[in-house]
Design a protein around this nucleic acid. Structure first.
Lengths: 350, 350
DNA sequence: CTCCTGGATGGTAACGTTTCCAACCTCTAC
DNA sequence: GTAGAGGTTGGAAACGTTACCATCCAGGAG
């Protein structure tokens, strides 16, 4: 190949481009390096099948022009899904979701994948729309913390999906979750074993998950031979701390108040503690650990699982599915939940 | 236009496609509706300049085929940036960042924009790489919580940038931040006014931000005529709670311990509280509010600002920049920080 | 010397969309 | 009846990349 490298003005062509200039493309790089377009592509993608000397020249041109591969154009090619994963979940302000996001972000980043967050209104319709949009963005895979609506529209999307924390209706896909029933049972067992006979449970509305926790609660009662007072099973339509606070006050104000409370969610736990105020009599166990739990006046006993691991596992699984490495039938991965005793759950009944 | 609509098998062509079939394109829609490609595009983009009857036929075809616009192909067209914003920030587990993420996600979502999260290692090199990758993904704009490294490479990126919480070196761009100096001054004023003369400040390493807070701390001392004991100015290389805990213990163990502590960050505040343990003598003021702050044994006094508003403002500004609606010179928006008295900051000196 | 093999390289067709332009139709004005 | 305007429509080019194929060259085998 004769040297076709032309003399160029280093000021205009070197990296700090004038703001209006369009970013350089592979074609620019090819011209600059005096090679063909295909060769540039090969170098950019690892350089296999290119003479070392040629590859160096191309790399030099890339540096000089400040070339950056246009991921959008790349993703347009058939078969080449974009190197992004989508993550659809609820309120990031909830440390539970934030932890999942952080963990999956880390795992995805290690494989050169970005993570697109779906906007996360509470309504099912919003979730569906968000998912559709993400699919339109050609993400390589979806991680979804689903609501209880139908997700069958995903089966034809042609994108691998991993559900996190709870399964979805209408589709058989990978699911990574916590052992909710065992967690609910462990928490309730713990309270019953200390002699509590009136154990309230406050449930946030994440139907599947809390349903399982409630099931554990009931099973613990059954096995202990303690009847469940249905007035102590409280469903919170919103699941906010404020709601839980009010519900707790109502519970404690009734004629025969519970001697122990099991909060099914970290926000609910917060509300319960607020509702109890200075009343340090009732025992409290929360589901999901939270920051500062050990620093409160009475440190809070919780049933906790490794939420970061939840996110990591889901991301790893999804990446393997997206890469086609993992072709097993849909997996169901259940992470354990363990009891962390800190004080609030060890109070004896009055 | 003669009716060219052909008889098709509703089973194979209706929405739940066989899993291997490729998703339908505009061309498929055009064929199905018996119109041209351009017409489909016009309908998809709002339908201006298309006869109502034709538009209906196209929409019907879209529904029947389950067509979903390929955002990637759309973004490939020159000038059409993708409808995604990028958000690059630190540890999502930190409620400060999580709140920003949530707020900007909301605002972006309302405008039909998705948000891509950059993987956020702590090292500057990682941040730069993450940003470059996001630019390669043709995002319409960048929201960055920058570190102290040079960001001049962004001036030639041709993408609007809004910095959040702190300005960046090497580039003059929009910045939305908290009034750190005033916050630092208010907190220190508050402590000095109660007679504290030995006020320690513990600084997490977010150079610009904490520098400003320190400046407020110094200014408060100067105006009050109280000399600053430099041994009470503690820099924490990592800024973690653990580090702050150790540093607090060291401070309190020294011969002449401080009677008040100002923690420059929510994680640092947590560490300070842990470090003090049962010692309820020293006054404590934290920067940034945090969940449960009011529920600790002594509720924690903080200097706080509306972090969600920080994220919202940044997202709105960025959207306007991306749309070209806002062509003002780079803005500098500073949000106020107010003192929230809860108890820990109102303890008198011993 | 010729043929063949195999690695390196250049060129071109896709990918699915938007945008532009030309073509067409209908209607009004002359 | 013709011209022109204005509204609809179809078709093709372009965006930047990758995959494929053809070409070219060097070197070894016959």
């Amino acid at each position: 190949m004769p040297c076709r490298e032309r003399e160029v003005n280093p000021v205009t062509e070197t990296f700090p481009r004038s703001p209006d200039a369009k970013p350089p493309t592979m074609i620019d790089v090819a011209r600059r390096a005096g090679v063909g377009l295909g060769t540039v592509s090969r170098v950019v993608n690892g350089g296999a099948g290119v003479r070392a000397e040629t590859a160096d020249r191309v790399r030099a041109a890339i540096d000089e022009l400040g070339f950056q591969r246009n991921e959008v154009a790349r993703a347009l090619r058939p078969g080449k899904k974009s190197s992004s994963l989508a993550l659809v979940l609820g309120d990031l302000t909830n440390p539970f979701f934030a932890t999942i996001a952080k963990a999956s972000l880390e795992v995805a980043g290690q494989s050169g994948f970005a993570v697109v967050l779906g906007s996360v209104d509470e309504d099912p319709e919003g979730e569906k729309r968000a998912i559709q949009e993400l699919i339109g963005r050609q993400v390589a895979g979806l991680m979804i913390v689903p609501d209880q609506s139908d997700h069958s529209f995903l089966v034809s999307a042609g994108v691998p999906v991993v559900f996190v924390d709870r399964p979805a209706h209408g589709i058989d896909a990978d699911i990574v979750m916590v052992d909710n029933e065992a967690g609910g049972k462990v928490a309730t067992d713990h309270l019953l074993r200390q002699g509590h006979r009136r154990v309230a449970i406050l449930l946030a509305p994440s139907y599947y998950t809390t349903g399982r926790r409630l099931r554990g609660y009931r099973r613990a009662h059954r096995e202990a031979g303690v009847p469940v007072d249905e007035s102590l099973v409280v469903l919170l339509p919103e699941g906010t701390a404020e709601e839980a606070e009010k519900a707790t006050r109502r519970l404690m104000d009734q004629a025969d108040p519970p001697t122990a409370l099991f909060a099914s969610t970290n926000f609910v736990t917060e509300g319960v503690l607020r509702g109890l105020g200075d009343n340090t009599q009732p025992a409290v166990v929360g589901f999901d650990d939270f920051r500062m739990a050990d620093m409160l006046p009475t440190p809070v006993t919780v049933v906790a699982s490794d939420i970061a691991d939840l996110g990591r596992t889901a991301a790893h699984l999804l990446l393997a599915r997206a890469a086609g490495t993992d072709t097993r039938p849909p997996q169901r991965i259940v992470l354990p939940a363990v009891l962390i005793q800190r004080g609030s759950g060890e109070r004896p009944p009055v």
